[in-house]
Design a binder for these strands. Structure first.
Lengths: 344, 344
DNA sequence: GATAACACTGGTATCGATAACAGTTGAGGG
DNA sequence: CCCTCAACTGTTATCGATACCAGTGTTATC
């Protein structure tokens, strides 16, 4: 590859002048430099520049599962927001693996100016190490329990769950099953806690045979619903704490011949791209996904400033909580009349 | 940040010895170096290392749309294959934008040792420039028409389309509509050409009012099916050339009150994560997605070798074509009896 | 004509690591 | 005791760009 020295020589100037030309400053022999660059096909080495300046003009996004439509949409939001600021967006997919997440954080923290990430668990120590390196950090969708103040963008998980339970109770359901997410992840914990407190608020006794903890992946949704359906007393409705587990649960229900909603009402957290086309159309708690990514990107830009500009003064961290919304479709209907002999 | 000099000083050795320790060679004062590294929290600068060695120990993947489940799965395959080789996978999402694709190529070609990409169009000039820089390149799912030999992994588009048309004709359909993809993209062109040649093979006249070219995105599937349904003579079946356009078409059909499959049989290219749960379950041409990514990764590894090892000798480029398979579900049924007066 | 201000210029140290090279040490053999 | 060899060591140039510093020329002002 040709380097800045080749260009300088070809144009008959010093490397400093080429640098100045590259930075948009006016130099006497601009034409000659431009010509030399074109003829040699010169591209400045990003690596060398980063080494000298310490800047990268790019940010990283680390998500647990890029094939989850929610995270894919989130990434889109980040990119859309970043593009006009002239920053590259680099993606990392941890595949729900702590080791891989750590490797990505190490890698991207050296190649980017800031990182937007959804940490795997609330005990995740990795981001703490990140903060010490001075890189800008924004948490999105997930949080960690300990550690320093960090910008974050969450959604109102508690409100969503409350809306869902209110909706089911309003339809007469009292035996409500739930497939929750990992309790050491922010959305898993918040949704589960909100569920229990909603149950309590409505005077519904929590029945352990109807409560399952999954791992937010499809297979665990399948397994959980099978266990729940084998419970001594079956539920009339089920709440599933995320999109992939909902997919798994629906698949298993179809295979088991359980009809939704006549045998079982289903409400899921997270909208699905095809939720309206399912049989029946799925009732869900929808939340902003693209917007959540965009919001995180905005927080990061506020901290980093534009490429080429001096960084803005540090300011206090911000926490955003975006609203969610219950979308009632066809998968939830009134509870069947109580069988004889049941408690009132 | 602490650098290698700090470590060397703290351990009472030269920087060269620290480098050697880092590279796994045996040095006399290994304990002291290890201790210094731990105490100072030293992490070697990836940027500086890359500048000196020219290696990055990471690869890039550039896709047109990460929120397309097919590409998300493909990325997963790449990562799964790369992980045991100790290479980082960095993602870029061009969002179907040529300018953004170019920026990503420039960016990632300077940060990675090789790139797996699905070029936007077959006329894409960008990868050609890439080849000149000497970086390893693998095309996946899409190809470019001109230019040097490149490793590539495609699927058997023609066979898939043929299977779909054979299936529809076997069910008695003769008025078959199609929503094709962009003709300047490899899958768009190959599927469209295979469609026309299958029509010809079965003696079906191509009716322009039933053939639409979309852009592989959901909105264009919606628009196309609306136009098709407004044709003077409606079709009894439709073939849709990819997953997102199929989603769009199904949504529009539902909104228009067209019943699938009784009013219209539907077969789509690409399986959907929820295809089996749709109403009706969707007949599709399924293809390996994760495997396609994994195959591309394998080709790249063959060219790059393991990190820390010398690169293997150059070898001729390879082209893989993976098989596809028609999955018959519920969205295709026998054509209705011909209305009176129709040509036989 | 001297002086100041301005707009540029090139030389060079530097970012943080690696690798080539030229020592230095200690063990073992004669 | 000297020599050879193996195993390790430090010094230094280098990757490709940037930024500081100290000029150099031109123009404007008195």
């Amino acid at each position: 590859m040709t380097n800045i020295q080749d260009v300088a020589k070809a144009a008959g100037v010093s490397t400093a002048s080429v640098t100045r030309y590259l930075a948009g400053q006016t130099i006497r022999r601009a034409d000659a430099v431009k010509q030399a660059i074109d003829e040699l096909g010169y591209r400045p080495s990003h690596v060398a520049r980063s080494l000298k300046t310490g800047r990268h003009d790019s940010i990283g996004v680390i998500v647990p599962d890029i094939s989850n439509p929610f995270f894919a949409a989130l990434v889109k939001g980040v990119e859309r927001e970043m593009r006009p600021h002239g920053m590259q967006v680099i993606l990392g997919n941890s595949d729900e693996d702590a080791g891989r997440e750590e490797a990505l954080v190490r890698e991207l923290s050296q190649r980017t100016d800031g990182i937007i990430m959804a940490p795997l668990t609330e005990n995740d120590e990795i981001p703490l190490a990140l903060m010490k390196t001075g890189i800008a950090l924004v948490f999105v969708d997930r949080d960690i329990s300990s550690g320093p103040d960090v910008d974050r963008v969450l959604v109102d998980n508690a409100s969503g769950v409350r809306q869902a339970v209110d909706h089911l109770v309003g339809l007469g359901h009292t035996r409500i099953a739930a497939i929750s997410g990992p309790l050491d992840s922010t959305p898993g914990r918040m949704r589960h806690e909100a569920l229990l407190s909603s149950f309590e608020h409505h005077g519904i006794a929590a029945d352990d045979s109807l409560l399952r903890i999954g791992d937010f992946r499809e297979a665990s949704g399948r397994a959980a619903i099978q266990e729940i359906w084998a419970a001594p007393q079956r539920p009339t409705a089920v709440f599933v704490a995320n999109n992939l587990m909902t997919t798994g649960a629906l698949t298993a229900l179809m295979e088991m011949g359980v009809r939704v909603p006549s045998d079982l009402s289903v409400v899921g957290f997270d909208d699905l791209p095809l939720a309206a086309l399912l049989d029946p159309p799925l009732t869900v708690i929808a939340r902003p996904d693209v917007d959540q990514g965009a919001a995180a990107a905005r927080l990061l830009v506020e901290r980093l400033g534009e490429p080429g500009q001096p960084s803005p003064a540090p300011h206090p961290t911000q926490s955003l909580v975006l609203p969610v919304e219950l979308v009632v479709r066809g998968s939830t209907i009134a509870a069947p009349a109580l069988p004889e002999g049941s408690p009132a």
